[in-house]
């Protein structure tokens, strides 16, 4: 970052080992700061390189949502981080309204970490299937081989209907999301569609 004017809502800055500036933002001022970064002359970070999240092995440390921004005009990069304490609600504002590229990136973070992005138009699981019941794979509490036994994983996988998310209903969700009743929106957000059969009783 070249300009000396501070990013609104900046808590502190650090320099990463690769020489890039990291700006830590207050979670509630993320959108404001991002808009500022994108639109202020002299900043013009018009390109969103990546959005991801980090959870540390030390569970006391907060999760970080990391945004990599770039100004194509100034050929400059900046890294923005928002810290989310693991005990509180994992939610930040979506930057989808600023960069369309954030659409799938935020969905992926949601899928892998369970971090919700407020204001995202279509926040669904993207890599795992929608009824995936084991949790959020990239969380440190998630074991490498998953929570269920292999047999149970195979059984659930085979019992998923490959056509489950192939419906007119699904196509209209994104459009109708605003009009749906709250409980339905909640169910859709959780990816509830179809029922996962009960595990066999004789283990």
């Amino acid at each position: 970052m070249t300009s000396s004017s501070p990013v609104p809502g900046a808590l502190r800055t650090e320099v990463a080992r690769d020489g890039e500036t990291i700006v830590f933002l207050a979670a509630d001022r993320l959108l404001e700061a991002m808009t500022w970064l994108k639109e202020t002359p002299g900043q013009e970070f018009d390109y969103l390189v990546d959005v991801t999240a980090v959870e540390f092995r030390d569970r006391e440390r907060p999760l970080e949502v990391v945004y990599f921004l770039r100004s194509l005009k100034r050929r400059a990069d900046i890294r923005i981080k928002v810290e989310l304490p693991a005990t509180a609600e994992l939610a930040v504002d979506s930057v989808w309204s600023l960069w369309r590229g954030a659409d799938w990136l935020e969905r992926e973070v949601f899928d892998m970490f369970g971090i919700t992005f407020r204001g995202h138009p279509d926040l669904r699981r993207i890599l795992m299937w929608e009824t995936y019941a084991e949790g959020y794979p990239l969380r440190k509490s998630f074991p490498l081989r998953g929570r269920f036994s292999r047999a149970e994983q195979v059984r659930q996988a085979l019992n998923v209907n490959p056509e489950a998310n192939y419906s007119l209903e699904e196509l209209s969700i994104a459009e109708a999301a605003g009009d749906l009743p709250d409980d339905m929106r909640e169910r859709l957000r959780r990816g509830e569609r179809g029922v996962i059969p009960e595990p066999p009783t004789a283990a």
């Binding site: 990546d50 980090v54 959870e55 092995r57 369309r100 590229g101 799938w104 992926e108």
Partner: peptide
Amino acid sequence: TAKPVRWRIRPPSFINLSA
């Protein structure tokens, strides 16, 4: 440690596909 806490790939074709 000798193992990364996070190894993130910025996948170019994933992001290109989103368009």
